[in-house]
Amino acid sequence: MEAFIVSMIVAATPLLLAATGELVAERSGVLNLGVEGMMLLGAVAAFAVTLSTGSSALGFVAGAGAGVGAAALFALVALGFTANQAATGLALAIFGTGVSGLIGQSYVGNAIDPLAPVLAAGKLPDNPALRVILGQDAMVYFALLLAFGVWFYLSRTRSGLKLRAIGDDAVSAHAVGLKVLGSRTAAVLFGGACAGLAGAYLSLVYTPLWGENMTAGRGWIALALVVFAGWGPVRVIFGAYLFAAASLSQFYGGVLGLSIPSQFLAMTPYLATILALVVISAAGARRNAPAMLGLPFRPDR
């Protein structure tokens, strides 16, 4: 049980990081489907830097930087050139997969030391629950704090209110003098940094190795997670842990004696997301869903 919870926490952290970043971008009205590409670029940049410097901290910085760079490319085309956001995001996902494979080719087969837990094993209390709670690495706690921080920002600050207004009605927001493109660009870059960190977590902690396509669809799951959580940052935390548990059930299903084929267990997060999407849309409970999600905006007037 303890092993299951620990592996769930480690699996949930990259999902939580990437989804939190995407949530901020989507609340500003921008749908960036390129999370998978940004994560892969973050993963390869982080791995390369950590391998050459030996510092995980620098690796995470590089991962976030690569994510920001990739997101800037998206922002240039989707916001600057007002291109179709879904198509631009897809271009980023495809491009990131290719470039990361090309850069990472020489790093395949190298190994690094994974990020150590904040508290060394000897300093942990004997209570198993406390051991799990206190025994994780820094990024686990950072991801949780980030999600709470985003919740506070969106719901309790003036700047967060403006960002939501831009996501719901960019034309009106522009008319009252808000900087629509500036805010959206900032939100997209924040999303890129988070996706880069998520990728870095995969290559520096989760595996810790570099392999082509190592995100294995987690970027797309993060997108699903934002919808599943109804665009709420705190619900993203629950969603990420739930999705992680569901994806691990593939491996633990046999142990628990379940006779359901693992593929059907692996389907549950996607089916649950579709269900959540239908329920959220049908109930009209779109209170958090940005009204202008995916619609381009150009200040013509």
């Binding site: 198509a87 290719g98 494979g101």
Partner: peptide
């Protein structure tokens, strides 16, 4: 996956 570099750039 290197072929994806060209596909992605082309779409951009």
């Amino acid at each position: 996956n290197a072929a994806f570099v060209f596909q992605g750039m082309l779409l951009f």
